[in-house]
């Protein structure tokens, strides 16, 4: 594609962008100072720590997922088709 965007427009936009970022960003720099530690209640860690050298005492019972329905925040989230997402046939048997 032959470039047609005016050099002037690019330069002007860059000047505005540089001016905009010169004002202090609202981003929270304190997170950086503490080695990426999450604030309480936030899932900011994203560490995905998953290895284990321990067994688990919690029994992971196999459930029939086709009889389970999602019961998290999706139940209250408003979507174009209304609240909840359940089709009639999806209710627990």
């Amino acid at each position: 594609m032959k470039t047609t965007i005016a050099t002037l427009a690019l330069a002007g936009s860059l000047a505005s962008a540089l001016a905009a970022i010169a004002t202090p960003a609202t981003a929270d720099d304190s997170k950086e100072k503490c080695y990426g530690i999450a604030m309480k209640g936030q899932n900011d860690c994203a560490a995905g720590t998953g290895t284990t050298c321990a067994g688990t005492s919690k029994i992971d019972y196999q459930q029939n997922v086709f009889k389970l329905v999602p019961k998290g925040t999706c139940v209250s989230m408003k979507t174009p088709t209304g609240h909840g997402m359940l089709e009639p046939g999806m209710a627990p048997a």
């Binding site: 899932n43 389970l68 999602p70 019961k71 998290g72 989230m77």
Partner: peptide, 16 residues
């Protein structure tokens, strides 16, 4: 631990 938002959306039983 990798998909905490997804777990909140569907609830822990369904997620598991």
């Amino acid at each position: 631990s990798r998909f905490p938002a997804a777990e909140n959306i569907v609830g822990p039983d369904f997620f598991r």
